[in-house]
Design a protein around this nucleic acid. Structure first.
Lengths: 262, 262
DNA sequence: GTCTATACACCGATAGAC
DNA sequence: GTCTATCGGTGTATAGAC
């Protein structure tokens, strides 16, 4: 696109000697977060509200009380800022997913897991995080839903990278749980399940549609309660659907080994 | 976002006195498509290759041999151009979907249809169109896949509007086919199915991944053949998955009537 | 090391001349 | 219908202040 060298610049502070190194003599400084953190917080909020494209660096920096160039200094580019914001939330989800799978496997010993348990650990964990913290939960869920369906290549690449470890673990568990199903078929179905989930989350502001929930902070227990209940129902509905799809009869054209044309 | 009146402008030629009205004395003019059509063709190709955001009006007009202002004259805005491009392809798919459903219902008389037949008519039709025309098919499929997951509000609204008629017909058919399943549950599952499909189509350039297909026009019969075969397999896999999900056991929390809090 | 000011190339939109 | 000129917006780059 941009003919002007779109090479991956990786700039900003060298990361080992990152900002925030200077600070901290007295603990009183604690309350004033460093510019970098403020940028991340403001960016996350604005990304959730308006999407990546519609959120300009000028709006972010203005609201964070920083200079326009601060983003480029701390993160190198808008792309990198987006990735950093995503990473903060996604890491939590994926760590929890690994923990959940660990627990399942530990409890089962060497026996294969029930597919429904595996799906619950993967997809249920995501929605449970959104439920536990009605304050920031739904916004991040919405952001993640949008992200998973983002067409921008650099985001897709980032997500693939970020998910790689978790997906490998879960795929392996599913292979073991469904030894009669060709592995390629399991991978396809996992792909389909991700799509259904992303769409369910991102689609037409589902949460607000159902619960009447809106962005204003949910101090009202009624709101929080409705929200939790809506997430619960969505989770159950979605999991039932996913399990049904995962356990569907295999396609006709057989296929344990890929056919090749010489 | 933009405080400056983001009201829907609907401009361009008044449509009844549209461009192309003047033309046509001799039939020899036929071969030189009007600017408007050239813009649509170039835009579609570039949108497919690079996405909506990354394709600038300057690139489109330059490649179409038109002036920058031509887009705004003929379509009123970039948004409207995007919608027009989508409409051209989507109309064909949805018309075919209605035709397929008509045929099914005519053949069945007053009896309810098999759910698998309904899904085949809806989702199979889409993929079959992509298969029949290996030249433009896969590009449009990719564009549509991207579009269905586009976060931009005006695109979501446009899609909802464009799909409304078709979805109503298919939902009604599914209600009749599955009288024991609560209607709300069917709607949810339809939603999930759309997500799985969109993701399957848009995700990581599936077609190229499988077939080795690339953007360069597929004159080679080998390519076209591989492409058709890949679409066939994707269709079968996807439909099996979707049917499994649609027919999955209902969630536990019962639910024929929505519970309300007083 | 942090942050500011400023310049740059590009974007979509539009008023007005031809 | 078409084209030029221009406007306010965008992300990015960099020189230099502290």
């Amino acid at each position: 696109m941009n003919d002007t060298a779109r090479t991956l610049r990786r700039r900003g502070p060298s990361r080992t000697t990152a900002p925030r190194a200077r600070v901290r003599q007295g603990a009183a400084r604690e309350a004033t977060p460093i510019t970098r953190e403020r940028l991340l917080d403001v960016a996350e909020r604005l990304f959730v509200q308006h999407g990546f494209e519609a959120t300009s660096l000028r709006k972010i920096t203005a609201e964070a009380g920083a200079n326009l160039a601060a983003v480029n200094y701390h993160f190198g580019s808008k792309e990198s800022l987006v990735q950093e914001v995503l990473k903060r939330g996604l890491d939590r989800v994926n760590q929890e997913r690994l923990r959940a799978l660990d627990a399942l496997e530990h409890a089962a010993g060497t026996k294969p897991l029930k597919p429904s348990k595996i799906l619950e650990a993967f997809f249920g964990t995501l929605l449970r995080i959104a439920k536990d913290d009605p304050q920031t939960g739904p916004t991040f869920l919405k952001l993640l839903g949008r992200t998973m369906t983002e067409p921008a290549d650099f985001i897709r690449a980032f997500l693939a990278d970020e998910y790689h470890q978790v997906l490998e673990r879960y795929k392996t568990a599913l292979f073991k749980a469904l030894p009669d199903v060709p592995r390629s078929e399991i991978i396809w179905r996992f792909h389909f399940m991700l799509g259904a989930t992303a769409y369910a989350i991102a689609g037409t502001d589902i949460l607000r549609l159902i619960t009447g929930w809106d962005e204003t902070d949910g101090k009202s227990p009624t709101h929080a309660q409705q929200h939790a209940s809506a997430i619960d129902q969505l989770t159950e509905r979605l999991l039932q659907f996913l399990i049904g799809g995962l356990r569907a009869p295999l396609p006709q054209f057989i296929e344990p080994s890929e056919r090749k044309t010489p």
